[in-house]
C-alpha cells in the first residue's frame, strides 16, 4: 500500500492482514557525490513503486528515510531505530529496509531485514533492456521478502 489516505484507510480496516513495512533508505549529498546519490535514490524509488504494486495487500511502503551521506552510521542507525520502535509498538511484524547504499551492509545484523542491491546506471541502458533489469531486480527482492514471511511463520 502507498503512503496515501485511501490506502491507509484500507490498512486500518484490514490490519490483521497487513503486517509488513518497507522503508527505503536514501542518502542525500551535494558536491562530488551528487550524481551518485541521485542515481541510488532514483533506482530505489523505481523498485519501491514496483514492489508496492505486487505486494500491496500485505505491505505498506512508507516515506523514504533520508540521511546525509556524511552522517555517521551509528547516528543514522539511532534515528532509524526510532522509526523501527514506533512501527513495532503498533504491531508491525516485518520491517524491510531497501537501499543501494552499501554502507548499511556493515550493520546488516542490527536491522530487521536489509534488502540491498547495487544501483544500475539506468540512464545508460536502452529502454527495452531497462524494463528487464528492473523486472529482474524486483523479482529477486520479492523472493527475499516472501522467503522471510515463510521462514518466520515456520519458526
Amino acid at each position: 500500500m502507498k503512503w496515501e489516505v485511501k490506502d491507509i484507510e484500507m490498512y486500518l480496516q484490514e490490519k490483521q492482514y497487513i503486517d509488513s513495512v518497507i522503508i527505503p533508505l536514501i542518502p542525500f549529498s551535494w558536491g562530488g557525490q551528487l550524481l551518485h546519490s541521485v542515481r541510488e535514490g532514483e533506482y530505489i524509488q523505481i523498485l519501491s513503486k514496483e514492489i508496492e504494486k505486487q505486494l500491496r495487500g500485505r505491505v505498506i511502503m512508507v516515506p523514504p528515510f533520508t540521511y546525509l551521506r556524511g552522517e555517521s552510521l551509528e547516528k543514522s542507525l539511532e534515528r532509524l531505530k526510532n522509526w523501527e520502535n514506533e512501527l513495532k509498538e503498533s504491531g508491525i511484524q516485518f520491517i524491510f529496509y531497501l537501499t543501494s547504499d552499501a554502507d548499511w551492509k556493515q550493520i546488516e545484523t542490527q536491522l530487521d531485514k536489509l534488502l540491498w542491491l547495487p544501483a544500475v546506471p539506468l540512464e545508460h541502458i536502452e529502454s527495452k533492456h531497462r524494463v528487464k533489469f528492473i523486472d529482474d531486480g524486483v523479482g529477486d527482492l520479492l523472493k527475499q521478502i516472501t522467503q522471510e514471511w515463510q521462514v518466520r511463520v515456520q519458526n
Partner: peptide, 8 residues
Amino acid sequence: ICTHLGCT
C-alpha cells in the same frame, strides 16, 4: 490482481 487485497 488478487481479489483479496490486491497483491499480484
